[in-house]
Write a protein that binds this DNA or RNA. Sequence first.
DNA 1: TATTGACAGGAAAAGCTTTTCCTGTATACT
DNA 2: AGTATACAGGAAAAGCTTTTCCTGTCAATA
Lengths: 332, 332
Amino acid sequence: MDHNIKFIAQRAGVSPATVSRVLNGTKRVSAEVTERVLREVQKYNYRPNFHARGLITRKSNLIAVIAPNVSDAFHARIISAITRRAAERDYNVIVANIYGDFQRQLRSCALLAERSIDGLVILHENTEEELAALVREVDVPMVLASVNVPGSLLPSVGIDDEQAACDAVNYLLRIGHRKIAGVFCAGQTMGVLRKAGYLRALREAGIKKADELIVESETSMGFGEEAIRALLRLEARPTAVFCAADELAVDMINLLTDHGYRVPGDISVFGFDDVNATQLRPRLSTIAQPIEAIGGAACDLLLDRIEGKCVPLVKQILPHRLTVRDSCRAMD
Amino acid sequence: MDHNIKFIAQRAGVSPATVSRVLNGTKRVSAEVTERVLREVQKYNYRPNFHARGLITRKSNLIAVIAPNVSDAFHARIISAITRRAAERDYNVIVANIYGDFQRQLRSCALLAERSIDGLVILHENTEEELAALVREVDVPMVLASVNVPGSLLPSVGIDDEQAACDAVNYLLRIGHRKIAGVFCAGQTMGVLRKAGYLRALREAGIKKADELIVESETSMGFGEEAIRALLRLEARPTAVFCAADELAVDMINLLTDHGYRVPGDISVFGFDDVNATQLRPRLSTIAQPIEAIGGAACDLLLDRIEGKCVPLVKQILPHRLTVRDSCRAMD
DNA sequence: TATTGACAGGAAAAGCTTTTCCTGTATACT
DNA sequence: AGTATACAGGAAAAGCTTTTCCTGTCAATA
């Protein structure tokens, strides 16, 4: 059942080298011999042994992607895009879930390194030192996707988070809002950037920063309900809330409706990412990230580097899109 | 930078065989020698070459999971669970997205076969013939997770879909509903089973089948809006709708609210799967699948088979849970 | 004391492919 | 006609680990 190249070579009356050349197209082989070899290959459904090949070519055509959590919508879609692109270029993708645990990440990477992957896509925001440890552990080409690590020299693909947040808030300003609260994920560069964009938009509109309108959630999902209550207790209640992630926006809308507020009737809510948006009522206005494009571009960038193509572009910024739906109303 | 076992052996003053034995614990080695070897291993951050090892052991510690779509919530969570369990047992997971395209699936599997994976978890519902083709293409242990292929002899893990659907409809009956519509995914065994459960519950309650209350959606996501309109135009309008998937339930609720109906005020909606449920308002009553348990069990089953442990249990049925939230109201 | 057994460790083969170097033939050119 | 060249194909090495078989030593038992 399990034949090797020598067997096929014998059956076709040629040397193993010739079989290899036919299968890899690495050198001209006469049409007649080629046909003879291919016939035997098909007949026995022969496929070269992965390990023997890898041993000599030092390639596995396997890349890995490290994600904080494979099952959240955003990352699941990026991974899906990476997988698709990779398959088109004859690569397979190993996923590693790390649940935000750096120790687990290192262990995962050791594991991955042992599997001798050709490259790594990182979807998980690491500190510069963590990234350095990673590079030390597994010495392969790496690409960051939708992750900002300021000091890092690794190539990356993503959007301009600050500008996008700024665009979102500018939109809210344009339709007449003045008291705009902001909800952000604390402890992540991405959150910091989006907050910076929010602040810049307000500053450029001549509105001075109001700390009581800013909420920082501890984790990326969910935030303190008390923070929201405090927001609503303010005498100068905000008329709109910019949420730095759709998950935050969904929680926000639910909390607001649970408290008897109407969205967008009483309060407008703006999201970020464009996941979940269509299932929700009201349909969420949000910053649409080109998720599939990010995944595809990250994959291409990585594979180009693996295959030694020169890759001039280091930080790739893809365009976001301000997507207006039903969750924000114009002030009159 | 890239050392091999011979180098480490020289540094430690032993033979390659001894280094191998120390690292694999495959034979007793004296404490002194062990320490000497480990010191060199750490010093040079040595890790055995994956391919050389695989070439001789005929193992890769790589399993693959084939999913219709990695990015839908249900499969993303199963994959997450599989990945986690696999990592605990020192395996990595390759994901293959096939988007319901059997040709793509075969190609993917050829790709995977070339990578010499140790096993396969199938999340995608195949026909018996497709499964047979798969087995022919890639000859490794396989497990079905949350997929029903009636004729297949492959081990599987999942819930009792028919019973679960029956439980759901019984619940609706218990709280007083009599006109209960059903929305199902056509063309899948899972949909057929859930429909059978729906019909059984009605039959056992002495309610005769009403074809006009049954809607079959073409794809697993989304369904014809006209079908719903037809449902609502009925003079004997249903008071509850059992949807055979949460996605269907979400669409249903949105359509109903868009048409001015209240859920659950005017019409109750019941879901299946328990994904999406908490973000939604009203919070969706649904059949909760033990998704993480299914993924974990499928992984364990597969790895046990790979490692040659005897696996007596062939079809593993895990308990589902009827989860009552806010989307169904009792009839008075 | 002699023999057996246990045990630590070494030598070498096996596992399978790719690739380099080489050979021999046929063609083209001088 | 003779030489140079191109080209198809073969032989063999390289790539690195695991594992089997073997050796030599030490301890234990008769």
